[in-house]
Computed example of a mutant assay.
Amino acid sequence: MNNIPGKKAMWLDCGIHAREWISPAFCLWFVHYSLSFYRINADITHILDSMDVYVLPVLNPDGYRYTWTTNRMWRKNRSVSPASSCIGVDLNRNFDANWCTEGASPDPCTEIYCGAFPESEPEAQAVADFLRSHKDSVQLYLTIHSYSQLLLFPFSYKLEETENHRDLVGSAQKIRRYYRNVYRYGAGAKTIYLAPGGSDDWAYNLGIKYSFTFELQDRGRYGFLLPPSHISGACNEALLATKIIALKVLEKTQAPAKSFQTV
């Protein structure tokens, strides 16, 4: 990919929680769509010409593999704790954003175990290191989860609103208008529950002011066991949201790049 001085970027990660299979499916869907419709779809062409796009399809690879081989409902990674026989850390409680306060647990046997210290896990540390080294260019952080059909943004670790709360609300409202399914939206702590140590709050505090968590289909009928017949619908909803918010960020942060870009 050619480099353009001052070019902005977006980050997209999937599969931080192992059992949320529709999440990695979306990252692959997004890459396939982007490559297939570049120079065909005007929105995706504009996004790819104007932004670098970093995609991490499976943030939690060992946990994800474990759901295929042993326990379909596994959530955490598969790290071993020297202080306990219990396995795994909740990677979305392991970032340095009010780490291990209310909404997380210091108990390795719980599903929301925060780890021994912030970024104790190699997966969380790798993401944090990359974003720290690209914080001047990354303007948009998107992390894909399931389920519940939610459009969430910071903060999740405290009840206070962000300085650009109205802008984030406006983005979520614009996305939801295009959905057939019902999606709730709002700051994480007020919309669902307190969840410290999350990647979206950490990214926001780093300086990435457009930071979103998408909880994809459904609302509980199938939950984590979303049937294959629902994949296209869920992924198309997430694709629409990704395009809308990326275009909004471009509108606010930079003029379209003129050089041809390939991915």
Rank of each mutant, 00 (worst) to 15 (best):
E20A: 13
Y178W: 05
H230S: 09
H134I: 01
K209D: 04
V127K: 00
E163K: 12
W202E: 07
L159I: 10
Q125C: 05
L150C: 04
S120E: 00
S232Q: 12
F26A: 10
D13E: 14
A42V: 10
T242A: 13
V249T: 11
R72Y: 04
S105P: 06
H46Q: 15
Y38R: 04
G198P: 11
Y141K: 04
I244S: 12
L240Q: 12
K8F: 01
M1Y: 04
R75E: 09
G170I: 14
R221Q: 15
I40H: 08
A234R: 01
T45G: 06
A257P: 06
P227S: 01
L12F: 00
S259M: 13
M1I: 11
D201L: 03
F214T: 06
S81T: 12
F212H: 09
K7C: 14
L151K: 09
F117W: 07
E160Y: 05
E163W: 10
P256G: 10
T70M: 03
L56T: 09
A25H: 03
G220W: 00
V31W: 02
Y157T: 01
W21A: 14
S23D: 02
L194H: 06
S146C: 14
H17S: 07
F37Y: 08
V89G: 01
V127H: 00
A257D: 12
D49C: 01
L140H: 03
H145D: 01
